[in-house]
């Protein structure tokens, strides 16, 4: 079993597809993950299952990868206390989750923008240019920079989960770059394909961060680290204060112009 614990999850699911379904039963959504380099052992730890669930999951996986054989299962880890398992974010994590909500509101209205886009219209091209500016400035320069430069630095940079998050950021950036290039040559299809691609990557990425990564980080950060993150995030917020207002109100204007107001996107 040790061998499988040290194997990337995508490789395990690729070889033994029922493992994916079994993980889903425990609300571990690795199947749709486009990266899948996390090791099985890390995934089990990150999801903080109860010792009973962890034991049952391991036995189930052993039954799939080595049917009919007696496999030595790892001792279930003692779970963090129930009180700290509640999905209650520390203040710095809460700030990131709140920023996600603005990005999700933008993603929610994006299909309507793409549907009505006319490459011959200067007004439509300007709007897409503003949308790309929102993504580059708010989502990437402001929000992702907080994550990559400050938050991730609190953890071992070699962690697979962090590599997967950085890869998501890079894939998002590649789509935005390509959308910008398509805009420059008035290529409506290229713009649509890349903005849809970006929305797909980011929506899945944000779900992973809100539901898995941030709660795991909160369980592992000390009070010292939480306080320092809070102070450093606020310093970034102060530097970006004016732009932040501008970009957050841009999302509101976009919603007003293109869609029904989206009161609850999550």
């Amino acid at each position: 079993m040790e061998k499988y614990l040290r194997t990337p999850i995508k490789e395990i699911i690729g070889t033994y597809p029922p493992v994916g379904a079994l993980l889903e039963e425990y609300r571990i959504g690795c199947v749709p993950c486009s990266v899948g380099t996390c090791l099985l052992a890390d995934i089990v730890e990150i999801h903080n299952l109860s010792p009973e669930d962890e034991g049952a999951l391991m036995a189930g996986i052993a039954g799939i990868v080595a049917p009919g054989r007696v496999v030595a299962l790892p001792e279930p880890r003692s779970r963090r206390p129930e009180t700290t398992r509640k999905l209650s974010y520390s203040p710095p994590m809460k700030a990131l989750v709140d920023e996600h909500r603005h990005i999700l509101r933008f993603l929610a209205v994006l299909p309507a923008v793409i549907d009505r886009f006319d490459a011959r219209s200067e007004a439509d091209r300007a709007l897409v240019r503003d949308g790309i500016d929102f993504v580059r400035s708010y989502a990437d320069r402001f929000h992702h920079a907080k994550e990559e430069d400050i938050l991730f630095a609190c953890f071992d940079p070699g962690l697979d989960i962090l590599k997967a998050m950085r890869e998501d950021h890079e894939r998002g950036r590649a789509h935005v770059r390509a959308a910008g290039e398509a805009l420059a040559r008035c290529d409506g299809e290229g713009i649509a394909a890349n903005l849809h691609g970006y929305a797909g990557v980011l929506a899945e990425h944000i779900k992973k961060e809100d539901e898995i990564l941030y709660p795991w980080m909160d369980r592992n950060l000390s009070m010292r680290q939480v306080g320092e993150l809070f102070a450093r995030f606020r310093a970034v917020d102060e530097r970006f204060a004016e732009d932040r207002k501008k970009y957050e109100s841009f999302v509101g204007r976009l919603e007003d112009a293109y869609a029904e107001p989206i009161s609850e996107v999550r």
Partner: peptide
């Protein structure tokens, strides 16, 4: 000036009943 505040509620026999971030 704001800082993170966490509350911890302890039972009469010393168990942690609740930890949560306060706002």
């Amino acid at each position: 000036r704001k800082v993170p505040v966490k509350s911890v509620i302890v039972s009469l026999q010393g168990e942690v009943l609740q930890e949560e971030w306060a706002s």
